[in-house]
Amino acid sequence: MTPLRAGDKARIAMAPFHVVIGGTMIWQFIAGTRTPMLLVMGLLFVVFGGYRLALIRRALGARR
Protein backbone atom coordinates (compact mmCIF):
# COMPACT_ATOMS: atom_id res chain seq x y z
CA MET A 1 0.00 0.00 0.00
CA THR A 2 1.44 3.40 -0.99
CA PRO A 3 1.94 5.62 2.04
CA LEU A 4 0.17 8.99 1.94
CA ARG A 5 2.31 12.06 1.41
CA ALA A 6 2.04 15.03 3.76
CA GLY A 7 0.38 17.09 1.05
CA ASP A 8 -2.30 14.46 0.49
CA LYS A 9 -2.95 14.24 4.24
CA ALA A 10 -3.42 18.00 4.34
CA ARG A 11 -5.81 17.87 1.37
CA ILE A 12 -7.88 15.15 3.05
CA ALA A 13 -8.00 17.10 6.30
CA MET A 14 -9.02 20.31 4.50
CA ALA A 15 -11.83 18.77 2.45
CA PRO A 16 -14.56 19.00 5.12
CA PHE A 17 -13.39 22.53 6.01
CA HIS A 18 -14.05 23.63 2.43
CA VAL A 19 -17.63 22.45 2.78
CA VAL A 20 -18.01 24.14 6.18
CA ILE A 21 -16.51 27.46 4.96
CA GLY A 22 -18.63 27.36 1.81
CA GLY A 23 -21.74 26.53 3.81
CA THR A 24 -21.06 29.42 6.19
CA MET A 25 -20.72 31.79 3.25
CA ILE A 26 -24.01 30.66 1.73
CA TRP A 27 -25.68 30.96 5.12
CA GLN A 28 -24.29 34.50 5.48
CA PHE A 29 -25.74 35.36 2.08
CA ILE A 30 -29.14 33.98 3.02
CA ALA A 31 -28.98 35.74 6.40
CA GLY A 32 -28.78 39.14 4.71
CA THR A 33 -25.31 39.98 3.37
CA ARG A 34 -26.45 40.10 -0.25
CA THR A 35 -23.08 40.41 -1.97
CA PRO A 36 -22.85 38.13 -5.01
CA MET A 37 -19.24 37.10 -4.44
CA LEU A 38 -20.27 35.59 -1.10
CA LEU A 39 -22.73 33.28 -2.85
CA VAL A 40 -20.38 32.52 -5.75
CA MET A 41 -17.42 31.72 -3.52
CA GLY A 42 -19.64 29.81 -1.08
CA LEU A 43 -20.94 27.58 -3.86
CA LEU A 44 -17.42 27.10 -5.26
CA PHE A 45 -16.11 26.10 -1.84
CA VAL A 46 -18.97 23.64 -1.26
CA VAL A 47 -18.60 22.10 -4.73
CA PHE A 48 -14.83 21.81 -4.39
CA GLY A 49 -15.06 20.36 -0.87
CA GLY A 50 -17.73 17.92 -2.05
CA TYR A 51 -15.54 16.87 -4.98
CA ARG A 52 -12.60 16.27 -2.65
CA LEU A 53 -14.81 14.26 -0.25
CA ALA A 54 -16.06 12.16 -3.16
CA LEU A 55 -12.46 11.44 -4.19
CA ILE A 56 -11.60 10.39 -0.63
CA ARG A 57 -14.70 8.17 -0.46
CA ARG A 58 -13.79 6.51 -3.74
CA ALA A 59 -10.16 5.98 -2.64
CA LEU A 60 -11.30 4.45 0.66
CA GLY A 61 -13.67 2.15 -1.23
CA ALA A 62 -10.89 1.02 -3.57
CA ARG A 63 -8.59 0.36 -0.60
CA ARG A 64 -11.15 -1.95 1.07
Binding site: T35, M37, M41
Partner: peptide
Protein backbone atom coordinates in the same frame (compact mmCIF):
# COMPACT_ATOMS: atom_id res chain seq x y z
CA UNK B 1 -13.89 43.31 0.51
CA UNK B 2 -14.96 41.21 -2.46
CA UNK B 3 -16.83 38.78 -0.23
CA UNK B 4 -18.71 41.12 2.07
CA UNK B 5 -18.84 44.55 0.47
CA UNK B 6 -18.37 44.38 -3.31
CA UNK B 7 -21.47 45.20 -5.32
CA UNK B 8 -21.06 44.72 -9.07
Amino acid sequence: GFLFAWKP
